[in-house]
């Protein structure tokens, strides 16, 4: 069938068409001038950079449309550098395009595959080498070598062991204990229930004992959001209701999905939104997930007031805060 049908033929590489610069000496001279101008512009760019570095103060600003009130030094350095580099490139390319030969060249490809004899020779060499080493004949050596190599791979694993401590129960614990006061973040001031109006929120952390320092590790697990609603707005079971105090409810601020700070509280809808992945939690129903990828409610912290009338934790968190992990049981 294919014999009958004639395909369209390759006409071959088209004849070279001369450029203006090939035929017209004036055009060539013009191109040469253009290249030189581009290289000259580049030099001006570098001068602008040097000038900006030495003479422009870093506190001076200049108004540029689109950019706005912009730092002059930064702009001068950057534009100088950009001009200097870009014009070198543009000059070189223009030079290549207009003044260097533009006749396309044909080169032949070579075959990658080795000759059959070479392949056979190679296989023979490898086999002969293996035979000379006697790998096949001495299984004891082969096996012990394999075992030794395999075992030695354990070394890096072993040596990397001290990268960090074992998790133990660290992921399960926070600093909150029964009676720990909630204090403002930042400011570290204890809070009374009457300090919060209905609709108010407060970012809180556990109060530090004297001499204690707060680390980011602590904040990463301890951050708590206080929200005050009207008590009748809650839709909680008796236990969870008893964890609130006069309409004030406390949640871990560390998202149960991936650990971002969930603090975006919408007062009217009583929804909490995590800005990272947009999980939405309903505060009135103990932070039940109503939208987004989070699979668990935010852990609720049981609160009450102490003898001085300040808000305190009734008990530690009853579940681990933050994102899930394998050892987490619920």
């Amino acid at each position: 069938m294919s014999n009958e049908i004639e395909q369209i033929k390759d006409p071959g590489l088209p004849a070279h068409v001369h450029r203006q610069t090939d035929t017209d000496p004036k055009a060539a001279a013009r191109a040469e001038r253009q290249v030189a101008i581009l290289f000259g512009l580049s030099a001006i760019g570098t001068l602008l950079l040097i000038y900006s570095y030495i003479f422009i103060k870093d506190s001076s600003f200049i108004f540029i449309p689109v950019l706005g009130e912009t730092n002059t030094q930064q702009l001068g350095l950057g534009l100088g550098m950009a001009i200097a580099l870009f014009c070198i490139g543009a000059g070189a390319i223009h030079w290549a395009k207009t003044l260097m030969p533009d006749e396309e060249v044909i080169a032949q490809r070579h075959e990658f595959r080795s000759e059959d004899e070479d392949r056979a020779e190679f296989v023979k060499t490898v086999k002969a080498g293996a035979a000379a080493a006697g790998l096949g004949r001495r299984p004891l050596i082969k096996r012990t070598l394999g075992a030794a190599l395999g075992l030695s791979a354990l070394t890096p694993l072993l040596l990397l062991r001290d990268l960090g401590p074992l998790p133990k129960d660290d992921l399960h614990k926070t600093s909150w204990k029964a009676g720990t006061r909630l204090v403002t973040d930042p400011g570290d001031r204890p809070i009374r229930p009457e300090d919060l109006e209905v609709g108010a929120v407060a970012q809180t952390l556990p109060e530090l004992a004297p001499g204690e320092e707060r680390t980011l590790n602590n904040i990463g697990k301890d951050a708590v959001l206080l929200i005050r609603l009207r008590p009748e707005e809650f839709n909680l079971d008796a236990e969870r209701l008893s964890w609130t105090h006069e309409g004030i409810i406390a949640f871990s601020k560390i998202c149960s999905h991936m650990g971002c700070a969930v603090a975006l509280y919408e007062q009217q809808t009583k929804h909490l939104l995590c800005p990272c992945h947009q999980s939405t939690f309903d505060v009135t129903r103990a932070a039940k997930v109503i939208f987004g990828p989070a699979a668990r409610p935010l852990p609720q912290l049981a609160i009450t007031v102490d003898a001085d009338g300040y808000l305190v934790a009734q008990q530690p968190f009853t579940e681990p805060v933050g994102p899930s992990f394998w050892e987490r049981s619920s």
Partner: peptide
């Protein structure tokens, strides 16, 4: 005052100076 979606930030948790 906490208008619309915005919650209230009480003077005790964020002082007037803050």
């Amino acid at each position: 005052t906490g208008p619309q979606s915005m919650p209230v930030f009480s003077d005790k948790t964020i002082t007037p100076e803050e």
